Amino acid sequence: MEVRTIKVFTTVDNINLHTQVVDMSMTYGQQFGPTYLDGADVTKIKPHNSHEGKTFYVLPNDDTLRVEAFEYYHTTDPSFLGRYMSALNHTKKWKYPQVNGLTSIKWADNNCYLATALLTLQQIELKFNPPALQDAYYRARAGEAANFCALILAYCNKTVGELGDVRETMSYLFQHANLDSCKRVLNVVCKTCGQQQTTLKGVEAVMYMGTLSYEQFKKGVQIPCTCGKQATKYLVQQESPFVMMSAPPAQYELKHGTFTCASEYTGNYQCGHYKHITSKETLYCIDGALLTKSSEYKGPITDVFYKENSYTTTIK
């Protein structure tokens, strides 16, 4: 009895394709271990004539594949690729409408935090270190965002349907971005203890939790000093293409032309909904596939993004 075979390709990165001759009487799992086709788990399936010449994702289970996976995804987590594939199996079914010149995501599976993050990423200057993220990001900007969303979920250790947080998501993504040249110098002034300067680099240099107003941050924000008295913390120097200011959701007025974009969060910790506000020729609110415009805006804002380049204080 002759062994019926077909020729397929296996890959971990969709760049390096490895030619395989597979036995049609055995499952993919018996031949390769966990195997995925377009995100779908085909591990328990036997090869079919229609699979001839198709590319299958496999887990990096030998040295060659491990090197290829690390170079593309910059992670050695053995569960990463499987999590990416199972997320992709959902995100490829989502709709990605162009809204006001940006790629958004039609609401499904509690994905409003991903839509808000995706919209924000198209408006701030950011370059990702893992080629996987950078490639998928370019495709997302062009309207094909399924891979990018699935990668975000995998890097953030999230599953489809789980509630997510924009600030946490951005923080994970910033860790995989090139923020080497970003720098922030802060000064804390206390009447009792004097003053202390701190220099922050990388992710810490672009994120701040405690106030939404970048102007206020430049002037000074009140913080408790270690001595128990009130101290003032203010920005001395900022070198970065953008800054992200966050605070627990509270009524906040966004003035046209003073910011790049913002995240609105309605609801409580267990259950809520994100919308995205962007400042173009007027203010726009993007909620999944829905767009509304207004000249002014007041609502429960939790993150505001500002364009920056270089700032030095005039406070002496």
Score class of each variant (00 low, 15 high):
Ala115Trp: 05
Pro249Glu: 03
Ile277Asp: 03
Tyr297Ser: 02
Thr211Leu: 07
Tyr265Glu: 00
His18Met: 11
Gly39Pro: 04
Asp63Gln: 07
Gly202Lys: 03
Tyr208Asn: 08
Asn111Val: 03
Leu118Phe: 12
Thr226Ile: 13
Gln270Glu: 15
Ile223Trp: 11
Tyr208Trp: 11
Tyr214Ile: 08
Lys229Asn: 15
Thr211Asp: 01
Met209Lys: 04
Thr75Leu: 10
Glu264Ser: 09
Ala108Cys: 12
Ala108Gly: 02
Lys7Gln: 10
Tyr72Leu: 08
Ala150Ser: 02
Tyr274Cys: 15
Gln195Asn: 13
Asp23Thr: 14
Gln238Cys: 04
Leu102Thr: 15
Tyr137Ser: 05
Gly33His: 10
Leu88Lys: 06
Pro97Gly: 02
Glu2Leu: 11
Leu283Ile: 15
Ala145Val: 00
His90Asn: 09
Tyr138Cys: 14
Glu253Arg: 08
Lys127Thr: 13
Cys112Leu: 01
Glu281Ser: 05
Lys183Leu: 11
Thr266His: 02
Phe80Asp: 03
Leu65Lys: 11
Ser240Glu: 01
Gly39Cys: 14
Phe70Asp: 07
Ile105Pro: 00
Asn110Cys: 01
Thr313Glu: 08
Ile277Ala: 04
Lys95Ser: 15
Asn16Phe: 08
Phe217Arg: 02
Ala140Asp: 05
Thr226Met: 10
Gln197Ile: 09
Phe242Arg: 04
Val58Trp: 08
Pro34Asp: 12
Asn129Cys: 06
Asn187His: 09
Ala132Met: 01
Gln196Glu: 09
Asn89Leu: 12
Tyr265Leu: 03
Gly202Tyr: 02
Leu254Gln: 05
Met26Gln: 15
Asn16Glu: 05
Gln98Tyr: 14
Asp135Ala: 08
Asp180Cys: 04
Thr199Val: 11
Ala108Val: 05
Thr169Gly: 04
Asn16Lys: 09
Thr278Trp: 00
Leu235Asp: 01
Asp41Gly: 00
Thr232Lys: 10
Glu168Pro: 07
Leu291Ala: 15
Val206Thr: 01
Ser310Thr: 11
Arg141Gly: 07
Lys201Cys: 05
Pro78Thr: 10
Ala140Ser: 06
Asn268Ala: 15
Leu37Cys: 12
His176Lys: 06
Val8Met: 12
Ala262Pro: 00
Arg66Cys: 11
Lys293Ser: 13
Thr5Leu: 12
His256Cys: 15
Cys112Tyr: 02
Arg184Ile: 00
Ser294Ala: 14
Gly194Arg: 02
Gly202His: 00
Leu81Asp: 02
Leu200Ala: 10
Gly143Cys: 05
Gln122Phe: 00
Lys201Tyr: 15
Pro224Gln: 13
Glu125Cys: 06
Glu264Ile: 15
Pro224Ile: 12
Leu119Gln: 02
Leu37Ile: 12
His48Phe: 13
Lys44Trp: 13
Leu283Asn: 09
Gln230Ala: 12
Lys307Ala: 14
Gln175Ile: 09
Gln98Ser: 08
Ala177Gly: 03
Gly101Leu: 06
Cys227His: 00
Tyr96Arg: 01
Gly194Leu: 03
His176Trp: 15
Asn89Thr: 09
Asp165Pro: 02
Leu173Val: 04
Ala146Ser: 09
Lys280His: 08
Gly202Leu: 03
Ser263Lys: 00
Pro60Tyr: 06
Cys190Met: 01
Pro224Ser: 12
Ile45Gln: 14
Tyr57Asp: 08
Thr302Asn: 03
Gly194Val: 01
Leu126Asn: 00
Thr258Ala: 10
Gly299Thr: 04
Val8Thr: 06
Glu162Phe: 02
Cys112Asp: 05
Gln134Lys: 09
Tyr84Ser: 04
Tyr28Ile: 05
Asn157Phe: 07
Ser294Val: 15
Asn111Arg: 00
Ala115Pro: 05
Glu144Asp: 14
Asn14Thr: 15
Leu121Glu: 04
Pro131Leu: 03
Tyr306Trp: 05
Asn16Val: 11
Thr5Cys: 13
Asp41Phe: 07
Glu215Tyr: 02
Lys54Glu: 14
Arg141Glu: 05
Asp38Asn: 11
Thr64Cys: 15
Ile277Trp: 15
Cys271Met: 15
Gln98Glu: 11
Pro300Ser: 12
Thr313Trp: 13
Glu264Val: 15
Gly202Cys: 01
Gly299Ala: 09
Gly53Lys: 12
Val304Trp: 00
Glu215Ile: 03
Gly29Met: 12
Thr226Glu: 11
Leu254Ser: 02
Thr302Ser: 15
Gln238Val: 01
Val58Gly: 09
Thr266Ile: 11
Thr314Arg: 15
Asn129Met: 09
Val185Trp: 02
Lys218Met: 02
Phe56Val: 09
Lys298Tyr: 14
Asp303Lys: 00
Phe9Asp: 08
Pro97Lys: 10
Glu125Thr: 06
Lys233Gly: 09
Ala150Gln: 04
Tyr252Gln: 04
Asn16His: 10
Lys93Met: 10
Leu119Gly: 01
Tyr72Gln: 10
His48Ala: 14
His276Ala: 03
Pro224Asp: 10
Glu204Gly: 12
Val166Cys: 10
Glu204Tyr: 11
Val185Arg: 06
Lys7Glu: 11
Gln122Met: 03
Ser171Gln: 13
Asp180Tyr: 08
Leu254Val: 01
Glu162Thr: 00
Tyr36Phe: 11
Asp41Arg: 06
Phe148Arg: 03
Thr43Trp: 04
Glu296Val: 13
Gln237Ile: 06
Lys93Thr: 13
Asn178Met: 05
Ser79Ala: 10
Glu239Cys: 10
Lys191Gln: 12
Arg66Ser: 10
Ser213Leu: 03
Asp303Asn: 12
Ala177His: 03
Ile124Gly: 02
Ala145Gly: 10
Asp41Asn: 09
Asp135Gln: 08
Ala247Met: 11
Asp13Trp: 15
Glu68Trp: 00
Ala250Ser: 11
Ala247Thr: 12
Asn89Met: 15
Thr169Cys: 12
Val185Ile: 13
Met26Tyr: 08
Met244Pro: 02
Val12His: 10
Thr232Val: 14
Pro47Asn: 01
Pro248Thr: 14
Lys44Asn: 11
Glu239Asp: 09
Leu88Gln: 04
Tyr72Ile: 06
Gly272Trp: 00
Asp38Lys: 09
Asp77Ser: 08
Gly29Lys: 10
Ala69Phe: 15
His90Val: 13
Tyr72Asp: 08
Gly228Asn: 02
Gln175Lys: 12
Thr27Ser: 10
Ser263Thr: 11
Lys201Asp: 07
Thr159Cys: 15
Lys127Gln: 15
Ile124Arg: 04
Gln251Glu: 14
Arg4Leu: 08
Glu125Asp: 14
Glu144Gly: 06
Gly101His: 01
Thr302Ile: 10
Tyr306Cys: 01
Ser213Glu: 05
Gly164Ala: 03
Thr232Trp: 09
Thr159Pro: 09
Gly288Thr: 00
Asp38Gln: 10
Tyr269Gln: 15
Asn187Gly: 11
Tyr73Lys: 05
Ile286Asn: 05
Ala177Pro: 00
Ile105Gln: 06
Thr258Pro: 03
Ala205Arg: 02
Leu163Asp: 00
Ile223Phe: 10
Lys293Tyr: 09
Thr278Ser: 13
Ala177Phe: 01
Pro224Thr: 13
Ile124Thr: 07
Asn100His: 11
Leu119Ala: 00
Thr76Cys: 15
His74Ser: 01
Phe128Gln: 01
Asn61Thr: 13
Gln123Trp: 01
Tyr172Ile: 15
Arg4Pro: 12
Gln98Cys: 10
His176Gln: 12
